[in-house]
Design a protein around this nucleic acid. Structure first.
Lengths: 149, 149
DNA sequence: GTATTTTAGTACTATATAGTACTATTGTCA
DNA sequence: TGACAATAGTACTATATAGTACTAAAATAC
């Protein structure tokens, strides 16, 4: 008899609640024209700027169709720009604007606040182990999706 | 210097990828008119049926406005019914239909497949610890949201 | 070197998600 | 018991998310 597992269910719930809290915190910090979903894209670009959309598909785990419309909005609000890759004209290079670069410090303050709530009452060791497991699971899932598409 | 943490970012990505895989698996198992999001609500009702919407807010971690429209659709497709609570007329009691009850076995088969992918390569002990941490985090976040609303 | 396949991205459509503002019912307290 | 506050849910609106079907460019095969 297999034990009842509900990791996916728990992950969904955590994502839901933490997203709502994060959005509220962004607004409290006067960041009104950016939300959690868009933040994930900007966050990824802070790690590595000037990438094609296909790279963002990997880094954010969003589908490319989702990214197309989110990038539309981020372009409208001047957080990113798109330009064609001259070497490979199928590709679109996404870059951060000055506006989004100057937001980084403030955004990181919100992230730190959020992490405090998220990991409330857990030791550094527990957090390390937890994030190691998260990375492992994400890798398994991504491989699976890649293989079965 | 605080260590860089990205639990929330990882959770979002896992939710995204696992949701896409789960949706695909549902379709492979001929469950075409139900998706992951709706499944979360039905799953919750299998644990405890005939509950007001406010209870589903807690069990699914969705907002009540989200639930209103999702229940509309689930009612249309005859997975649930709504009736007024005679004792407290502000409340609406949500119940499973025969259709959703008879789906349970098949849905659980998909869940088990999904869990195999999700926890690929992890020991029972690691999974136990991981789910314990998830429950802890969900509790912290829910309390926080409750207190600051 | 053309034909085919693969890759990169978008348009369109449908559903998921949540916020704000609202109605109706119940609870509270002077 | 009547005014006010709290609770339960919905209507409306905006954005997030992804699937299907498409176009264009590059890579590959013969």
């Amino acid at each position: 008899m297999q034990k009842l597992r509900e990791g996916g269910f728990l992950v969904s719930k955590i994502k839901q609640v933490s997203g709502r809290i994060f959005d509220k915190k962004l607004r409290e910090h006067q960041i009104t024209d950016l939300n959690t979903g868009q933040g994930r894209i900007i966050f990824s670009l802070w790690q590595k700027d000037q990438v094609p959309i296909s790279e963002l598909v990997i880094q954010t785990a969003l589908s490319k169709t989702t990214l197309t419309s989110m990038l539309d909005r981020l372009e409208q609000t001047e957080y990113i720009t798109r330009k064609m890759d001259e070497k490979d004209k199928r590709k679109i290079i996404v870059s951060l604007t000055q506006k989004s670069k100057s937001l980084k410090e403030q955004y990181e303050a919100v992230s730190h606040e959020m992490i405090s709530v998220f990991y409330e009452g857990l030791s550094e060791e527990e957090i390390d182990r937890f994030e190691k497991t998260l990375n492992h699971i994400l890798l398994s899932l991504s491989k699976y999706e890649e293989d079965y598409k």
